[in-house]
């Protein structure tokens, strides 16, 4: 018993052969799994590149015909083969900015409520409910927007806003229907809120308890803890979250096309109809055949893709460059 017996595999030539076979299989298996995983990852990159290529390719004729002037020209007359994205770009910027200006403060407040104020039981219920808001399909939100929200906006909010703030030109007199830039912005606000709220909640939850307790011990009120500790240490993440929300608002096509009213002029009043890049594509593409019309819609897609990618990349960059962990590591 004093000398340990050699493992049976070393004694038995058949078992040894089986073991070497298995080793070979393992080598192949390792390579294979690695290869497949790598291929899947590369495929994802290829898809992104291909998306860019296809969209630019489709836009080719329109790009060579209109050039960059497309961005500022406002005429959109398919019958005369005149196309310009000016008013659509305007509508996109106005609706998204409005949605962000209204949605971000609400969403950040929700994040604060869920991370710092709400009792655990309430948080467990309200958190998923806020995320459910993001799960409502945009087509249903848009449909609800047309039939429920737009009449309400038209009958109650527009007259009131016009009466109270009519001296500001953006609150012009109400139009015949509720389909307007304003209604579209409200729908986008609803879509943006859950995105920003859930990211900022996670950010606020990650702020070390010690720092907050320290501030409280120095006599800071709850708001002063938020203002002095929580927000400064997460500001970059909150900005990144808002940019992600902006990206979502810029690209939303279906819901906006349902409620925005498909106007095609730049108007001062928010209560007039307008249109956005994405909504114009969703609205008019199904009826087109190949040609300059379709290509111009692809050109709108190129603009949208470029704006979307930029806002996304900036969000990623801010999120990483100025993240809380990074600040601590430095």
């Amino acid at each position: 018993m004093s000398t340990p017996a050699a493992p049976p595999a070393l004694q038995n030539p058949r078992a040894a052969r089986a073991r070497s076979r298995r080793k070979k299989a393992d080598r192949i298996g390792d390579r294979l799994l690695f290869g497949i995983c790598l291929a899947a990852a590369i495929l994802a990159i290829a898809v992104i590149v291909l998306i860019g290529y296809e969209v630019v390719n489709g836009a080719g004729p329109a790009i060579s015909k209109f050039g960059l002037g497309f961005l500022v020209h406002q005429d959109w007359q398919p019958n005369f083969k005149i196309f310009g994205a000016g008013s659509l770009l305007f509508g996109t910027v106005v609706t998204s900015t409005f949605a962000l200006l209204l949605g971000a403060p609400i969403a950040i407040s929700i994040g604060l409520y869920l991370s710092l104020l709400a009792p655990a039981g309430v948080r467990g219920i309200v958190s998923p409910l806020v995320e459910m808001l993001a799960a409502i399909p945009s087509v249903i939100l848009g449909f609800w927007g047309v039939l429920v929200l737009a009449p309400f906006v038209h009958e109650h909010m527009e007259p009131w806003l016009h009466g109270a703030f009519g001296f500001i030109p953006i609150f012009g007199s109400p139009e015949t229907t509720g389909a307007s830039i304003f209604t579209a912005s409200l729908i986008l606000t609803i879509m943006v809120i859950p995105i920003i709220a859930s990211i900022s909640r996670d950010l606020f939850l990650a702020v070390p308890r010690d720092l907050q307790d320290g501030a409280s011990a120095l006599g800071a009120t709850r708001w002063e803890v938020v203002r002095g500790v929580v927000l400064p240490s997460t500001s970059s993440g909150v900005v990144a979250a808002s940019l992600l929300g902006l990206g979502r608002a810029l690209g939303e096509a279906i819901a906006v096309s349902q409620v925005v009213g498909a106007g095609s002029a730049i108007q001062t009043s928010l209560f007039k109809t307008g249109d956005t890049l994405a909504a114009r594509i969703a609205n008019q593409f199904p009826g087109t055949g190949p040609g300059l019309y379709q290509s111009s819609l692809f050109y709108l897609g190129v603009i949208l893709l470029v704006i979307g990618l930029i806002s996304n990349l900036v969000a990623q960059w801010i999120g990483r460059r100025f993240s809380y962990e990074g600040a601590v590591a430095r």
């Binding site: 296809e54 810029l250 690209g251 096509a253 593409f285 806002s311 996304n312």
Partner: peptide
């Protein structure tokens, strides 16, 4: 690859529609 996934997540679905069409 993480960046690719994030960008893919951020691409407006209407653009994916254009891509599929093309």
């Amino acid at each position: 690859i993480r960046l690719t996934l994030d960008l893919m997540n951020g691409i407006p679905s209407i653009i994916i529609g254009l891509f599929i069409f093309g």
